[in-house]
Every structure is written in structure tokens, then in C-alpha cells.
Design a protein around this nucleic acid. Structure first.
Lengths: 343, 343
DNA sequence: ATGAAAGCGCTAACAC
DNA sequence: GTGTTAGCGCTTTCAT
């Protein structure tokens, strides 16, 4: 057992232990430039026996390079952002870049604070959810001089690049499918979140599609907090009791949709004959339910991948195109709860 | 529109714009020391109009202080670690400390790499899952000279502090409850993960409890990858077909348990009369299912909170006790799928 | 209440 | 292939 040093080890310690200059030690540790095998081995040995861990703070300051990518998302609690993260990691794992995540809980002022905090670490790029930000946040992003990718949503103007789906189009597509299936009395169940712009846009597209067919939302329910499964069940019970002639329920996410589906199955509703249901997101978790809920895949994995690729291209190989815009098209899944289009 | 500077702004820019020395600007921006209100206002104005974002890299190097806490966990894909994260954030939100997470995917060598990477940013503390690490990882932790909290599991020796539950005891408790309820032919369904030490320890405790009552595992099934809900369903079908006289199924997590529960309900099994089921974790998501699965809460929120408190105490208020050990006791939930103890 | 000097641990750029 | 010098942008310490 060697004596414990309270002061963390520095390059100088390795330099002294190996009898090689600090500069050469630095080169070895970063695999940079030409170093003779003999010197390299001496340095590696010394570093290992000492247990040296480089100080990236100092390295970053000296090199003006930080291999961090700031990822700013609303939450981790439903499965959607974790899946985006997987796409991001999948790409960044093949690069020296590392994602660092910050959560906003759907609050603009928190997003601003998190962004400020992250930018103060001078990351190589920023990936953040949504196109709606405070003026200050947009100003910071524009001034940061690093690639910025806004993800999830493409209904609006990005600061720099954007990758996502059109939630307005997604809502419209589902609305059209419901109309085509012949449902007439459509109820909507969603979250009470004025700041969830993507849910709002889906709702707008959805009502628009219904309106084109001369339909209006027959009834609606909103919730906040609590277990989504339980809330879905409760809201479904409420809306079906209040408006018994409803023949379709559109849920703003699959989790409340699943709760509603359980309720309807227990009550013995004829699905999708007399009552249809649909959610949004294509949550993998839910495969394996007794009945497959109609839904729409939000392309989360691909969004994460593409966003990371854009950042990586700029941060590493100089820079690719500026202000790239990628709009993915979500697939609709009819499952067992939405009739296919009627003749 | 002011002209875009590619070079990020520095303290010097704010100093020049406000006509105040860099030192005083620095003091204002950190609310340190005495600065006259007039000067303070001048500086704040200048910083805001310029859009200055401090460089924490430089700040950290100069002050030898980094308000980051490294959190190293296996995965984000089931709900357990996100919930631990919530506990951690809840506590750290009231401090200047910020969590930074790294994922290991249950691979020791990846844990070692992630740890090395994180330590190179010189965080104020480390929280990591489990007590099993590579020798190199343990050496790094011991040498880092910062508080280290190993979480989730308390069946073993920590490097420094530990907070968790005894998974061996948890398995034993569930085994005893099953025995007390009078079930005799018990099947086990779990993940094929030799490196999930906590699942292994639960299994050990479980079989021990059965053995004490003269029982052995009647049959078992393991899975890897795929949707847990689907796998739970498939494994349950397989085990019940192969060993029809089974009267209890113990699942290593609630998600596969839920899949199994669906299968059994569809097939019309008499639950919990002729067939009992239990999972592990108390996943909130699952409240709202048609039937409540027996389970055990792993105290995830409390683990996160307590771990963060230990780090905060050391990093901020000098240091608290060294090597603190906190063992939480998980609650058992009988739900609708496990009979209460038989007379 | 404010400023000047020194240096945190590393790397870029240039010698040799 | 290796070493030297000069900072990176802040904060610490000490002076005023």
C-alpha cells in the first residue's frame, strides 16, 4: 500500500516518475505525435503505477476543446426521451464526444438556466428539444458559435439545425385515419400542459382533420401528474359516462391510452367495432399488452441518431452544412383498436 | 443586431465594457465580497448586454472546485434508475452541485472507462450503483480523494459510503411470504444476466428461504433482450406448459411479472388461489393494471436522496462522517396476486 | 471597496 | 523524437 496523496496527481508527477518531459508524457497519454516505443512504455508504466487520471479541466482550457455535447430535454419520466438518448449515444459512442444531459421539466425558465449552465462548460454542440425557447435562450444559442440542433418538432424556425417530425401533420394523419374508419363521435384525452407545444400541435392538426370532415371533438378530458395508466383509466371512465355515444378516444400518449384500453376491455366494449382508441408514441414497453393500441411512432431513435450525426460532423470533421433541416415521417400502427379505412 | 464575435466573450470583455477591473467583475458575477451597488449594476448591465456566459472550465481550474457529482448507473431503460435520479436531483437542486450521469450497461469494463472519464473532470463526489467493480475502478475511487457512495445494494464492503437495501434479504422476505401463504411448487423467471449482482443476490436469498421450508425451485426460465412485457408472457406460457403443477411464479422484475400476469388472466387462472405471482421493484407505471402484482419496493427514491445528501454534506459543509452505511428496508406489497399468510 | 500579480494543469507552437 | 516557452480564462492572495 503506497501512501495516500491528498493532492491529485499531475502530469509533472508522471514526468518525474518516468524521467520524461511533461510534454512527452502529455503526447503519450493522448496518442499524439511521434514518441518512441521505449519512451511510450516508460510513461505508460509510470502513469499506471501512480494511478494517474488526467485533468480534463486543464486540458480543455489549454486546448480550447471540450468533447462534450449538451443535451437538453424536458424529462426522463416517460420513455420518449430515454429513447432519443439511446440514438444519440449510439452515434456518439463512435466518437470522442460525450453527451451531458440537462432536464427542463417543460419549464422555459428552467431550460434557460440549464442552457446557461451547460454553455458555461463550452460544449462542442447543443441538442435541445423543441423550437420554443425564451428570447435569452435563443440569443445564447445563436451567440455560442457551436452547432445547435433542435429536435422532436419541425413546425417552426430553428436557430440552426433541426431534426424531428411535424406534430401537426402527425395529429392530422391520425385524425384522417379515424375519419376514414368511419368514426363520428370523437373524444380527446390529454395532459394539462400548456407548455407541451408538441402535444398542442398534434391537437391542432387533429382537430383540423376532423373539421375537414365536418366533425368536432365530442368531449375532452385533461390530467396532470400521477400514474399515467391510472389517469387514463379514470379519464376514460369519466368521459364515457358523461358522453356515452362517443365512438372514438384519441389519447395524447400511449400510457394513458393503455390505461383507457384496460378500462374499456374490462367493461366489455366492442373494440374496435363500436369504440376505437388510439394513442401516440409507439412505446415499446406496451408491446405485449392483451390488445395492441393504435399509435404512431415518433421516430425517437432516428431523431437522436441524426441529431448526433449533425453535431459530430461539425465538431470533428470541421463542419458540414449549416442549418440542416430533417423532417422524418412517422408511421401509423392500426393495432387492434382502430378499424382500417371503410370501403 | 450587434456583430457576431466568433471568439466567446471573456471576463476581460465585460471588464472593458464596464470600465471595472476583471477582478471586480468576477466578484460581482459570483456574488462574492463587497462591491458597491453602483459598480455591481454597471457590471451586470455590461454582462447582460454583451451576452456573457462565464467559462467554468477556467473557473474550475483556478478555484480547484468543480460542482459536479458523477452518477454512474447501469442503464436508464427500466424505470428503476430514473427514479433514483429523481431522488438525487431533488436533493442536489437545493445546492450548487449538479449530477452528471454515465451509463455502464452492466459491463464492468465500461464502468471502469466511464469512471475514468468522469474522474478526469475532477467531480466533487461519485455515486455509483453496486458494490462490485474492477480492481482498477476500486483503486481509482479510493485514490480520488472525494466522497464515494455506492448505492442500491448493501450486501458487501463499500469503498467509502453505501446506501441501499439488502437484496439477499429482499429475496428471503419474498420467499418467506410465499412459503407462509402455503404455495409449494414455485417457479422462478428472470434475466439472463450474470453481471446483475443484485438480481443474483435476490435469487440466492429467495432459494434459501424456500430451502428452509424444505422447498426447491420447481422450474425456471431466463430471458435476454426484447420487450420485458412480451418476454414475461412468453416465459410464463413456457414454464406453465412444461410444469403444469406450478402454483407460484416469482419474477425478477415487475415488467416481466406484468406480462406473465396478463397471460395468466387471459388463460383464466385462479389468482391468487391456485396460482400466485410476485415481481420486484414496485414500478409505479404498473399501478392501474387490472390486477395489482405482488411486489417489493426497492426504496429507489430514498436511496437517491440519501446518497445525494451524503455527497452534499462532504462537498459543501466540509465533511460529515466517513464511510456511512445506510440499509433501507423494502416494503412488501401483497397486491392481488399473493395470498396473505395461511392460518 | 477595488486592483495587481501569480498560477491552477495542461497543450499549441515552435525550437532543437 | 523530444524539450521549451507561453499562455488558455479564470480565482486566490495580498496590497491599497
Amino acid at each position: 500500500m503506497t501512501a495516500q496523496t491528498r493532492r491529485p496527481l499531475t502530469l509533472r508527477d508522471v514526468s518525474e516518475a518516468s524521467g520524461v518531459s511533461e510534454m512527452t508524457v502529455s503526447r503519450v497519454l493522448r496518442n499524439r505525435g511521434d514518441v518512441s516505443d521505449k519512451t511510450r512504455q516508460k510513461v505508460l508504466d509510470a502513469a499506471k503505477t501512480l494511478g494517474y487520471v488526467p485533468n480534463k479541466i486543464a486540458g480543455a482550457l489549454a486546448s480550447q476543446r471540450v468533447n462534450l455535447v449538451a443535451v437538453i430535454i424536458p424529462s426522463m419520466s416517460n420513455m420518449v426521451f430515454p429513447e432519443v438518448m439511446m440514438g444519440i449515444s449510439e452515434i456518439l459512442d463512435d466518437t470522442p464526444l460525450q453527451p451531458v444531459v440537462g432536464l427542463t421539466h417543460y419549464k422555459p425558465e428552467r431550460e434557460e438556466a440549464v442552457l446557461y449552465e451547460m454553455l458555461s462548460w463550452r460544449p462542442s454542440g447543443v441538442i435541445l428539444a423543441g423550437l420554443e425557447h425564451t428570447d435569452a435562450a435563443r440569443a445564447m444559442l445563436a451567440a455560442a458559435g457551436i452547432p445547435v440542433v433542435e429536435i422532436m418538432d419541425t413546425d417552426g424556425e430553428p436557430v440552426d439545425a433541426m431534426v424531428g417530425i411535424s406534430h401537426r401533420a402527425a395529429g392530422r394523419t391520425m385524425g384522417e385515419a379515424i375519419v376514414a374508419a368511419g368514426y363520428k363521435r370523437v373524444g380527446f384525452l390529454g395532459t394539462k400542459m400548456p407548455l407541451d407545444h408538441r402535444a398542442r400541435k398534434r391537437f391542432e392538426g387533429f382537430t383540423l382533420a376532423l373539421a375537414k370532415a365536418g366533425l368536432e371533438i365530442a368531449d375532452q378530458e385533461f390530467y396532470a401528474g400521477g400514474s399515467a395508466l391510472v389517469k387514463g383509466r379514470e379519464m376514460t371512465e369519466a368521459i364515457l359516462n358523461r358522453t356515452p355515444d362517443i365512438d372514438f378516444l384519441y389519447y395524447s400518449n400511449d400510457m394513458i391510452g393503455a390505461g383507457g384500453l384496460f378500462y374499456c376491455m374490462e367493461k366489455g366494449y366492442d373494440i374496435p367495432g363500436k369504440l376505437g382508441l388510439a394513442g401516440f408514441n409507439g412505446v415499446n414497453l406496451l408491446k405485449g399488452l392483451p390488445m395492441q393500441l393504435a399509435t404512431m411512432d415518433a421516430c425517437r431513435l432516428d431523431i437522436g441518431r441524426k441529431a448526433a450525426q449533425i453535431i459530430a460532423a461539425h465538431a470533428l470533421d470541421g463542419d458540414g452544412p449549416e442549418g440542416e433541416r430533417v423532417t422524418l415521417i412517422p408511421d401509423i400502427t392500426f393495432g387492434d383498436t382502430l378499424r382500417p379505412p371503410q370501403g
